[in-house]
Amino acid sequence: MIFLFDANRHLLAEIGLQDGALRQLVLTGAGERELEAFVSHWQTRGIPVMHSMEATKPDGTHEIATYFSYVQPREKGFGAALEKWAKERGFCPMDVPDYLLPLWECLARLPLEDSERFAMLLAIRLSPREALAEWKSALDESEMAWQKEHERSRIVLDKIKSKMGGELAKPFAKV
């Protein structure tokens, strides 16, 4: 799976690949705004890959030609082309192996900023595989701590609501 982030570390898309070809592509809200036009272009024409070619002419001068080739989503080279395309445009593609997806799901449940989620995922991805079980415990522990605090918040807020009672309903009272 490739996760595509923008330069501000907002998640734009989750891209599933099979043997290098596109299997599925899910855009987030931000991804829809930033990538929708590109994605429809990929579907109709393919993803553009820039190539540079240098040649030496008989008179000894060098010439650099730049051209594009297009890779279709169902072709095996799509994943590589997508990574290249994304890096060239300042996006941040991150290859996330399937065995990390349960940890990503834990991260996605936590109310973190996008950049924080990106940093955590990067840390997990850079860690050796034998550390993953510990990462899972760390994330579970954090989720539990947060849920406990969230429950406390609910109780506190319920108390405030009942204390204020009728005051809160005033703006909505029928005239």
């Binding site: 973190l112 860690s127 510990e134 954090s142 947060w146 406990k148 605090e149």
Partner: peptide
């Protein structure tokens, strides 16, 4: 609370 717990446990892993 979330960030403090996460940082503590993550740094323990790392």
């Amino acid at each position: 609370v979330l960030r403090a717990t996460l940082m503590k446990s993550a740094n323990h892993v790392l």
